[in-house]
Every structure is written in structure tokens, then in C-alpha cells.
Amino acid sequence: MAETYPSPRFGAPRESKSPANPGSGLVRMLDVVTASHARAVGFLVLCALLLFLPGFFTIPPIDRDEARFAQATKQMVESGDYVDIRFQEDVRYKKPVGIYWLQSAAVEAASALKLPKAELRIWVYRLPSLLGAIGAVLMTYWAALGFVTRRAAVLAALMMCASVLLG
């Protein structure tokens, strides 16, 4: 079966000879972004913030572990005991202590900045995880630079940034 094209009306403009390339804008943007390491890192941080921040301040604790981490850290800050981690009356030695220390540092910093009721805001406890996620994106970029071009490293970091598990 042969394809037929309708004949143009008299005086109608002809179709362009060069086909449109919708991906050329993306390629130009990647060329601009990958012109230097500073631009690439800035672009990746911006993309990470755009992907990680929706709901960061408003979504309540997602799973029971997040709430338990926050409560144990809250108790740690209130008691001033940064070694003996407790969740209510039970000891909580199941997880590495570093996350509790980072969360307590975030709460202390927010309190020092005069944020009202900083120990009750869940997003303050999420700050170390946000910084860790951005760090994972940047480490993916840095690690990929050893094997591929800067453009490919940015694309690898963007894939890490868009990972549902990381978000």
C-alpha cells in the first residue's frame, strides 16, 4: 500500500525540508550545563532540590521507622544524653548512632537559629537525609567522571537523582 500525501493548495507554503529535532534543546542545555564542573554541580544540586523538596515540609512521617528515629532523637536532645539512645523507655541500639547525632545537630542548629518549636517539626529531622541524598547524587557524578565524559556523568547523576528509592 503506497502512502499518498495530499497535494498542497495553490499558494500554500511548502513544508520545511529539514525535519524538526525536538531533542536539540536538551542537547544544547546539556552542553551549557557541562561546560564546567561548577555548572554541573550547581545544576545537579538544583535538580536534586527540585525533586527532593516537594512534600519535605508538609508530609507527616512516612513510615514508623522515621517517627521512631525522630522521637529517639527528640528524647536524646531533651535529656542531653547523646550516648544512651532510647525510644520511650526502651533502649534503641538497632541503628548506627550517627543518624541520631546528625538529627540532634540539626535540631540544635534550628533551635540556635530561634526556629520556634524546632524539636516538633519533622522537616528538621529530615535535613541530614536531604543532605545525604544530595551528597549521593554528587558522589555519583564524581565517581562517573572516572569512567565517562562529563555529560554522561551528569546524566548518571540525574538518574540517581530521579531514583524513587532515593527520593
Results as ranks from 00 to 15, higher is better:
residue 2 A to T: 11
residue 2 A to R: 13
residue 2 A to I: 08
residue 3 E to S: 10
residue 7 S to K: 12
residue 8 P to V: 03
residue 9 R to M: 10
residue 9 R to P: 04
residue 9 R to L: 15
residue 9 R to N: 10
residue 13 P to Y: 05
residue 13 P to H: 08
residue 15 E to R: 13
residue 16 S to E: 14
residue 17 K to Y: 12
residue 18 S to R: 14
residue 22 P to A: 10
residue 22 P to Q: 12
residue 23 G to C: 07
residue 23 G to T: 09
residue 27 V to E: 14
residue 28 R to C: 08
residue 33 V to P: 01
residue 34 T to L: 05
residue 37 H to A: 11
residue 39 R to Y: 13
residue 42 G to D: 13
residue 44 L to E: 00
residue 47 C to L: 14
residue 48 A to E: 00
residue 50 L to H: 09
residue 53 L to T: 13
residue 53 L to Y: 07
residue 53 L to R: 07
residue 54 P to C: 03
residue 57 F to P: 00
residue 60 P to K: 10
residue 61 P to Y: 06
residue 69 F to A: 03
residue 69 F to T: 00
residue 72 A to Q: 01
residue 76 M to G: 02
residue 79 S to L: 05
residue 80 G to I: 08
residue 82 Y to E: 05
residue 82 Y to K: 11
residue 87 F to S: 02
residue 88 Q to R: 02
residue 88 Q to S: 04
residue 90 D to I: 00
residue 91 V to E: 03
residue 92 R to C: 02
residue 93 Y to T: 11
residue 93 Y to A: 11
residue 94 K to A: 08
residue 94 K to T: 08
residue 95 K to S: 09
residue 99 I to D: 15
residue 105 A to Y: 09
residue 106 A to L: 05
residue 107 V to M: 06
residue 108 E to V: 10
residue 112 A to L: 14
residue 114 K to S: 11
residue 115 L to E: 07
residue 121 R to A: 05
residue 122 I to N: 04
residue 122 I to G: 01
residue 122 I to L: 15
residue 124 V to L: 03
residue 127 L to P: 00
residue 127 L to F: 13
residue 129 S to C: 04
residue 129 S to V: 08
residue 130 L to C: 03
residue 131 L to E: 05
residue 132 G to N: 11
residue 133 A to F: 01
residue 136 A to H: 05
residue 137 V to F: 01
residue 138 L to K: 04
residue 139 M to I: 07
residue 140 T to H: 02
residue 143 A to I: 10
residue 146 G to Y: 13
residue 147 F to R: 13
residue 147 F to M: 13
residue 148 V to Y: 12
residue 150 R to Q: 15
residue 151 R to F: 04
residue 153 A to D: 01
residue 156 A to E: 03
residue 158 L to A: 09
residue 160 M to W: 06
residue 161 C to T: 13
residue 163 S to C: 15
residue 164 V to A: 11
residue 164 V to C: 06
residue 165 L to R: 12
residue 166 L to N: 01
residue 166 L to Y: 03
residue 167 G to W: 11
